[in-house]
Design a protein around this nucleic acid. Structure first.
Lengths: 350, 350
DNA sequence: ACCTAGCACTCCTAGCCAGCGATTGCTAAG
DNA sequence: CTTAGCAATCGCTGGCTAGGAGTGCTAGGT
């Protein structure tokens, strides 16, 4: 832990604040003036440190659980630490390799790669990891194939440019042959190619069906297939590693955990919390009350977007106690998101 | 709660045991003799009940946390209660309807229906629900379709009789046209039809590819597609509702929960625990030490298989404290499994 | 032979208090 | 501006007590 650049604080105050945050993250115990002088070479006595600590508390960076205890960082203290004081970490080559290896073994399917990445991040971060799954809505239509299974049943497969295939079974009122389905597939593909899924209109489909003189029920069948491709994973989350939170001394009390797990289960709140980080370039951190949810005042979230090609399509996040190793988690989240992004783009269908 | 049939115990002992279990399940507090005489019309005094309780303790049905406390059931006590004393429940029409409605709205995809059923059971049971996903290995091959995406890329879709479609992207070294892929699909379908996935051999595939004079790389492509269809979800679990366990007074202590969550995460132990219930006709219950895992001595599991057509393909389970409402959970698990079974069979491709 | 009132006994629990240790803020001197 | 020293504060622990819950046993009644 090194002193960072000032930022409203003189150099020594900055160093002391950084050290308090660092020490508290490591031990989960309020940090006393004597601890600071003993474990870190400050070159001043504990009395001097006490004066500095009092100033930092007056400035809102630290709080005291009770008069005869050491100091712990406030949200503002953590914020200053993250923004100005801490030394950013980069991933060790070993970690980087491990991430790549684990993700390589995962299936190629969109959903499953994202879930693997989430599990991996949960394990590495020893916290709760979660990811938003991309809405298929914004994906590019790539191919539609109607598969003939029997005279009156079939399956529609919609492939997007991300390589996600969604399927929907259908049943028909009148018999049909395999060739007709193939013709229809071809007609649809030439009409729908290069559109966004969300831009496909019923009229496009109707035109193709009518042109071939096929029964109107195909319109429904195809629209259903397209709709299921679109609404697929809309704004759902993958999460992993909740049990890691149980190891933190501050969550030995089950009630705090209960509310957080409810929030994770519910998904929507969590989704909203990270949604605005979609366009971020670097990992974003939200600390305690910054999250704006009462039940989460003791938590922080690190969020980093992942990409498909050029554009961000979802977020990968770590949720843990405010007392989290920010630098490390930011590095881990970035690294995982990066690897995930390149993994996804590998699978792109050109 | 009614007295059940004796079973080594005279009628009054049976009634008292049943009442103790019932009361302990409801309150989570050791049950005292006076509580029994006051809340239930036993027609005898608390002193008499004390004598009976002492006998039941000697018989191993009850235990006393300490000398001046009431009694709580032992594993044997719960076992007797479940096997002989409790009144089986059947689901209310309202519950039954709710299950059907919620599962109807779920996607038709095999995995997703199972996941929905698990989530639903977690919510209804207010405990942790989990399900084994069927190994695709034992499914019937139904259709293979190679989809042309570009001159050198395509996607293989394998459809099983359960309606599960698995997909795998491929890339070729030499250009190919859409028609050739269609021909190859047809040739493969006529050869592979009506086989089990696990019975398909490389030679079957090779024959079709060679017959059409296509490049050898197709053999790899197709075998990969088939392999990904097979190994799909091998022995993985879906789980939901862990946070419900936090509400139980016995798990306010985070450590007990930690070990259970690890076991759920790990999957294998849990899978082995329920595997032998695959062929059961009725819900099976395992109580405390019967599970044979030290960390789970305070838990019980209710398991019921679900079916596809005639044969059982997986299990749906509820995991909770030993002190669980067995009759209700058995009814809920059965009801959910039944609805799941018929939902799956609806989707069968004939 | 069984039931039950009464009672002594056991053991947990909550509350209280004292003492200890940790840590601070303040003061006064360097 | 720093620091040594010191009184003051407060949480934590341990021991102690009083209260209460519940039992097991005994002895008398039916």
């Amino acid at each position: 832990m090194n002193p960072g650049s000032p930022g409203g604080l003189d150099k020594r105050k900055a160093y002391i604040l950084a050290t308090v945050v660092y020490e508290y993250i490591a031990t989960a115990e309020p940090v006393a003036s004597q601890t600071l002088t003993q474990k870190y070479s400050l070159g001043v006595s504990s009395a001097t440190v006490r004066n500095e600590l009092a100033d930092l508390e007056a400035g809102g960076y630290l709080v005291q659980p009770h008069t005869s205890a050491g100091r712990i960082p406030s949200d503002a203290g953590y914020r200053t630490f993250v923004d100005q004081l801490m030394q950013p970490e980069t991933l060790q080559a070993a970690d980087r390799r491990r991430i790549r290896d684990e993700l390589r073994d995962a299936s190629r399917e969109l959903d499953e790669v994202i879930e693997s990445a989430t599990r991996l991040l949960g394990r590495l971060s020893k916290n709760l990891a979660f990811a938003t799954k991309p809405s298929n809505d914004a994906q590019m239509f790539r191919h539609l194939q109607l598969i003939w299974l029997s005279a009156r049943t079939g399956m529609g497969i919609v492939v997007t440019s991300m390589g996600a295939a969604s399927q929907s079974l259908f049943e028909l009122a009148a018999d049909i042959g395999p060739d007709e389905l193939t013709c229809l597939s071809n007609a649809l593909n030439s009409r729908l190619g290069n559109k966004m899924l969300r831009d496909i209109r019923e009229s496009d489909v109707a035109a193709a069906v009518d042109e071939l003189g096929l029964a109107a029920e195909f319109k429904t069948v195809i629209m259903t297939a397209l709709r299921s491709a679109r609404s697929g994973e809309q704004s759902t989350l993958a999460a992993s590693g909740a049990q890691n939170l149980l190891d933190q001394p501050e969550f030995q009390d089950a009630r705090k955990l209960r509310s957080i797990l409810n929030i994770v289960e519910e998904q929507k709140t969590l989704y909203d919390l990270v949604a605005d980080s979609m366009m971020a370039e670097a990992p974003e951190v939200k600390i305690g009350h910054e999250l704006g949810v009462d039940e989460m005042n003791d938590f922080s979230i690190v969020t980093v977007p992942y990409r498909f090609g050029e554009s961000a399509i979802g977020m990968l996040s770590v949720l843990g106690p405010r007392r989290m190793p920010y630098a490390r988690l930011m590095a881990l989240a970035s690294g995982t998101a990066e690897t995930l992004s390149s993994r996804l783009s590998d699978a792109e269908i050109k």
